[in-house]
Nucleic acid binder design. Structure first.
Length: 822
RNA sequence: GCCGGAGUGGUGGAAUUGGUAGACGCGCCGGACUCAAAAUCCGGUAUGGGUGAUACCAUGUGUGGGUUCGAGUCCCACCUCCGGCACCA
């Protein structure tokens, strides 16, 4: 007998909707749980198995919390702006507005078939003017607080997407979206000053419960390093000071040359006439190299002498100034002092161009005059370093930093690897940046009362090398808000990561018209208690959102500094072949097939049972059949025992079998509770399976007239509640079958009694020298002495130890006795 | 190269603070029901030895060491795989 899953799913979907089972009351915040799952991106692709693996388990966890009497806010919405939708529109010619709203409608139905408990009254759509009005408003707040600025900078340009990208969106020199090689361009673009929050973004990591891996990824991405800025003068240009950044001021005496980035502003000024041609050629060549070529660590280093000399401030030594593209203009000062003896890159470069290599730190156990075979980057004793000779390099680092500061030729500084967040995009399908350019007044923000700056619909969005909005006269031409003269609008749109940096706040006030959110509500509901989503956003969305909320906190707009208190990542479901699912590999598993065959509950449960939620793994076709069998067993055991539910006579005296069953029930409740809470869904389901096995054993072994009907009813009702978060449709149906009032999700979570789990007799393990020799059933609470007695007299133990000397006996209470003999 | 994480049966994966390794499934083998099949149910299933069958013995959580009465778990070295970063001075 199978269960009619289609009928059940439709019945309860309808019931939940009509009776508003999942209505959230934000006023009831005293036991609140904000459970957030990363919202989907409605491009041309529908939801796939990966989404199921995200939303199904997240919903299970949310339902579990709801049954534990939390007011659970588990909203859903759509990250609707963005490139995939626009690229699809370019390909088909259909307006992204149309495809996006169609896809949203479709995906909303798919989400409903997962059976999730979203309250759709709180839905958000980032491409809706009522949403992006506030994205623009937030841009203006950042601008007002000097956290948004426009600057010319070398940027990452994706030739295929025809737009710039943030550093976070460049993976190994390629576009995160389309894998095209990213080019470098100098453009004037909008940035958010995320680097101003570097320290706090680092410090905040200690205050949140996130996977260590994710925290480390953010930490490495921010890339803090401590060092010093040191000023060198240039021979013949005494009023110009060349600043370098180094983490190793202790090696200053070992600097035998300097390197500037080819783009460094000093380069044209200081290059000698004789070297000018070579320098210009090198700059040209470096400019042509793609980002990936230039940053490749395996490529041989190249460079050109400028003809200029710098003066080392500590010993007045003249050292040649080179340019080389292994020095980046975008980090530090764009210039370095090169110490080949103690830096691998400088060593390689110096060997190639025959530049002297001077040892200033002696590696312990080596000779001062022995030539170096490779750079020595460790610590040691100072040599060739004037008054610092003989000091340890560690000491020297401190001393020389102090001295440099005293002499006014350097200062201790901190550098970060990450850069400000570039938010301009030369694309159509995004929120317009609310700025106006006036010939007289310069850049002028759009007044708040004039928001939103509506994204015009009648725009040719095909890429032609200029931002699509630039081609719309109607959009571009406006008047300056300050002086009223004719002016032009900013034609770039915002990175979609701006949209998703605050959606979790908007959810809480999704309908608010005159403000981005209701201060009272977010005060009561932020932060998000549990965030669930992929690790692929570790250094993008998850970093941006933290920055946003910190900035808002400083403006008095957010009650919290950190948006996401707890975070878990789901793993990835791979194809049956163990590879990542992709159309080109032909290993994509389509959830629809399993929905038709087994229904939504089976698919959900299989995803949670067959995989470690946080690890994922390859799809196995047999697994879903196993879960189908399991749910069928539950279905059967309930429907074949309906008579136990009425009339209810309380039979409190338990037979041995009753006690066993009762124990199994409490044991299952306990462990399902613990495991569901900590996202160990696979073991939670295992514990339910054990209970079901126990239940079948009881029904089979105990004669019907001896079965404790009251106990059976309790066990069955608890069983139904235990599986409810996992298989919501079936549980709801069975709950009704068992005479319960729908909805089972308002029926509370079963409680367990630790005493009922305990048994008087346990199996003691007896070891001799750490090897198991006997197992014996005995009272649980034996004193140490009793346990020792037991061990020494059980089975073949006396025989085994009779010729030996007992050294000591270790008793692990309620578990094991180890007799150590010699 | 640097920084993380992980290596457990044929297989997915379990194992509070060091204390019965392999829970729960899948697969496989055997059996029951059936004319037969499907479905369902029951039993077995780490490896090697041993026995008529039990019992029992040895080995066993990537490799090699160590700490401990006792190690999948802690420490050291190494190997493999996965993920992130990568000329960041």
């Amino acid at each position: 007998m199978s269960f009619p899953f289609n009928e059940i799913e439709n019945k309860w979907k309808k019931y939940w909707e009509e009776s508003k089972t999942y209505k959230v009351n934000l006023n009831n915040y005293h036991k609140k749980c904000y459970c957030l799952v990363m919202f989907p991106y409605p491009s041309a692709d529908k939801l796939h198995l990966g989404h199921w693996f995200n939303y199904g388990p997240a919903d299970t966890w949310a339902r579990f919390k709801k049954m534990n009497d939390y007011e659970v806010f588990h909203p859903m919405g759509f990250d609707a702006f963005g490139l995939p939708a626009e690229n699809y529109a370019v390909k088909t010619g259909i307006h992204p507005q149309k495809t996006t709203s169609e896809n949203i409608a479709f995906i909303r139905e798919q989400l409903k078939s997962i059976g999730a408990m979203y309250d759709w009254d709180f839905e958000v759509n980032t491409s809706d003017p009522s949403y992006y009005k506030w994205t623009q408003w937030l841009f203006l707040q950042l601008y007002k607080n000097n956290l948004a600025y426009r600057a010319e900078a070398p940027v990452n340009w994706c030739p295929s997407c025809q737009t710039v990208l943030a550093n976070e969106q460049v993976i190994e020199g390629k576009c995160e979206r389309c894998s095209s090689l990213v080019e470098r361009k100098n453009l004037t673009q909008w940035f958010f000053r995320i680097t101003a929050y570097a320290e706090r973004l680092l410090a905040g990591l200690d205050k949140i419960e996130w996977p260590i891996k994710t925290k480390l990824m953010q930490k490495n991405w921010i890339g803090k390093s401590k060092g010093a800025e040191i000023e060198f003068s240039i021979a013949g240009f005494m009023d110009e000071k060349l600043k370098v950044f180094t983490t190793r001021p202790d090696t200053l005496f070992g600097a035998t040359y300097m390197v500037l980035a080819p783009e460094h502003p000093f380069v044209p000024k200081i290059s000698s006439k004789g070297q000018a041609k070579a320098v210009n050629e090198y700059i040209k060549q470096a400019g042509r190299a793609s980002e990936i070529e230039r940053t490749s660590t395996v490529r041989e280093k190249t460079g050109v002498f400028t003809g200029a000399y710098a003066v080392n401030p500590v010993n007045n030594e003249k050292i040649p100034v080179w340019i080389a593209d292994y020095v980046l203009m975008t980090y530090g000062t764009g210039a370095i002092m090169a110490v080949p003896a103690h830096d691998e890159r400088d060593f390689e470069f110096a060997e190639k161009y025959n530049i002297p290599i001077r040892k200033v730190i002696l590696e312990p156990g080596t000779e001062k005059d022995a030539p170096l075979k490779e750079a020595y980057t460790g610590e040691g004793t100072m040599v060739n370093s004037g008054k610092y000779d003989g000091m340890s390099s560690k000491e020297c680092l401190q001393q020389i930093s102090e001295d440099l500061e005293k002499d006014g030729i350097g200062k201790r500084t901190i550098q970060y690897k990450f850069r400000d967040w570039l938010v301009s995009r030369q694309r159509y399908w995004g929120a317009p940046i609310p700025m106006i350019f006036c010939d007289d007044c310069g850049e002028v923000p759009v007044p708040e009362e004039a928001l939103p700056v509506i994204l015009p619909e009648d725009v040719d969005f095909k890429p032609k090398g200029v931002p699509p909005l630039a081609t719309s006269e109607k959009f571009v031409n406006t008047n300056c808000p300050k002086c009223g003269k004719a002016a032009r609008r900013e034609v770039d749109t915002m990175d979609t990561f701006v949209d998703s940096s605050w959606y979790f706040m908007r959810y809480l006030s999704s309908k608010a018209k005159d403000k981005p959110w209701d201060t009272e509500v977010i005060k009561n509901w932020m932060p998000v208690d549990q965030y669930i989503g992929g690790i692929d956003h570790a250094t993008m969305h998850l970093l941006y959102a933290r920055f946003f909320v910190m900035a808002l906190y400083d403006m008095g707009l957010s009650p919290v500094e950190e948006p996401f208190k707890n975070l878990v990542h789901q793993g990835i479901i791979k194809g049956p072949d163990g590879n990542r699912m992709s159309k080109s590999r032909g290993n994509v598993i389509n959830p629809e097939r399993y929905l038709e065959k087994y229904g939504s509950d089976v698919l959900r449960c299989y995803l949670m049972f067959g995989f470690d939620f946080q690890a994922g793994g390859p799809w196995d076709d047999g697994g879903s059949a196993a879960i189908n069998r399991f749910l069928k067993r539950i279905w059967r055991v309930v429907s074949e025992n309906i008579d136990v539910f009425s009339p209810e006579i309380k039979e409190t005296s338990f037979s041995k079998d009753d006690k066993e069953l009762n124990r199994a029930m409490h044991y299952a409740v306990k462990h399902v509770t613990i495991d569901t809470e900590r996202f160990h869904f696979n073991t939670a389901i295992s514990r339910v399976m054990e209970l079901v096995n126990e239940l079948f054993r009881y029904i089979q072994d105990v004669k019907p007239e001896n079965q404790n009907k009251y106990l059976l009813a309790t066990v069955l009702r608890n069983l139904i509640r235990l599986i409810a978060p996992y298989a919501p449709h079936i549980a709801e149906e069975l709950w009704e079958t068992a005479g319960g009032q729908p909805s089972v999700f308002n029926a509370g979570w079963p409680e367990y009694d630790e005493k009922a789990i305990e048994t008087n007799e346990i199996t003691w393990v007896i070891q001799v020298n750490g090897k198991i020799r006997e197992r014996v059933s005995a009272a649980k609470n034996l004193s140490k002495k009793q346990a020792e007695e037991l061990a020494l007299n059980t089975g073949r133990i006396p025989d085994m130890i009779k010729d030996k000397k007992v050294v000591k006996i270790i008793v692990v209470p309620q578990k094991l006795i180890n007799i150590v003999v010699r």
